[in-house]
Nucleic acid binder design. Structure first.
Lengths: 246, 246
DNA sequence: AAGAGTTTGTGAACGAGAGAACAAAATCGA
DNA sequence: TCGATTTTGTTCTCTCGTTCACAAACTCTT
């Protein structure tokens, strides 16, 4: 999904609820950096310090924060606790988000025991698996529920966010059921392209894709070191193409 | 930018080894889509079909592929097997990449048992954990090695890619040791900002950040439905700011 | 062999994001 | 109070990525 609010004239950043996607993706990072600074006893922080802790450039950080409103003080910096609250509010972490996880394989188990969710305002209210033999097994303090409980649970808790951690082939059907039951945001760990209605947000996390991207760069590093004479790839390509087309 | 077309005949694009980052990130997706099409018995596929299977727009797919070279046939489409091989070669999947995983908590266990790595040319050669009591425990067919084996193992296998799945506070030290031992690409699952030398690539996967991004959009959906009058947030903000600054 | 029909590869327009640079706003010291 | 200093918020420019639209290149049918 994409929301492109045409800027309706009003320049007040806080009123302008359309925050750039790239900025939204960094807000949680800032939140974590602020938490670290707060733990270290800092009550105030400059954009330079915060940017350092978050691993970004300070100009970018300032621009990101300016989209939320004018929450800093020139000559001083940002009040750590106050900014923390503002970002949390902007992201929606001041409320609690009930979540379900579908698919309790290795990854699903890891997710259901992962403390990082609960501590940030997400509470896992149920976990599901298609294997009837595993129903009742406990993971992260929750029993595995049977798949036929999916719709009633989603409805009862008003779930809008779900995590899919099933094998690839099962993912689409699960997504369909989740959407039909009322879910409108899905975090997908399954290696599959999900097709969902426009109003539904899907974010995909793919472990093997990340490794492949690293492999590409790694290969380039290796190649750029050893390869001085260009052109031998050309014949290689032609040969391969002929073979491939046979 | 130096995007000059060297009119030196044969394969201009293939010689141009600089593939845009955004394209690199999609190549693995195309690879998976091609595998699915091949399994379905298709020997040839149009950009439209392939784009459908990969969940992207066909113009984007064509431009992405054009960066690798001119591997399609006008009026026909792309030879599935041939394109598969070319992409795999470009990413570097025609060779085998040995990988180590550090940190065998819930997530590390899931990663070490995950089949998607091995099937794509990544072989996990060792797993490490800081807890001495767990050394020897088997996960995914490998025993947990003690941390002091990290450097020798990395050296012996010529490891260049490593996965960090430790708790946040331990991540930086692990990264330092990996880099010192010769690793130049890191996939980081720990909730921490890693600082590494320039030549080292780091990719970060953060589960709770993904959920937070979904929460933001979810909150916006909810808000845009109920809220018609803007401006009340402003006073809210002012009040909060005063409180926060006390 | 020629025309009709497909489908790629790419030029051009557009939009989003990153970074540099600086004016505006606040503090601090005398 | 005034000037020096710090640091934000914003403007401008540049780069990168996406999308459109179409000529070129290929196949197929007659």
């Amino acid at each position: 999904m994409t929301q492109m609010r045409p800027p309706t004239g009003s320049r007040a950043a806080a009123a302008d609820r359309g925050i750039p996607e790239a900025t939204v993706a960094r807000l949680p990072v800032y939140l974590r950096a602020l938490a670290a600074l707060a733990d270290a006893g800092m009550r105030t922080a400059s954009s330079e310090q915060l940017a350092g802790a978050a691993g970004v450039n300070s100009a970018k950080l300032r621009k990101d924060l300016s989209h939320l409103g004018s929450y800093g003080t020139r000559g001083v910096g940002y009040d750590v606790e106050y900014l923390r609250y503002q970002i949390a509010r902007e992201i929606g972490l001041t409320q609690d988000w009930p979540v379900v996880i579908v698919g309790i394989g290795n990854l699903g188990q890891a997710l259901s025991s992962y403390g990082g969710f609960r501590s940030r305002g997400f509470s896992i209210v149920a976990i599901f698996d298609a294997d009837p033999d595993r129903v009742g097994e406990e993971h992260g303090g929750l029993p595995i529920s049977p798949m036929d409980q999916l719709e009633p649970v989603v409805a009862e808790h008003g779930i809008s966010i779900a995590v899919i951690a099933t094998p690839g082939p099962a993912a689409q059907e699960v997504a369909d059921r989740l959407v039909a039951a009322g879910v409108s945001s899905i975090l997908n760990f399954a290696p599959a392209v999900l097709s969902v209605p426009e109003r539904v947000d899907v974010r995909k996390v793919d472990l093997s894709i990340e490794l492949q991207i690293l492999a590409y760069h790694e290969q380039r590093k290796a190649l750029s070191g050893e390869e001085a004479v260009p052109g031998h790839d050309a014949t290689d390509d032609v040969a391969a193409k002929v073979v491939g087309q046979l």
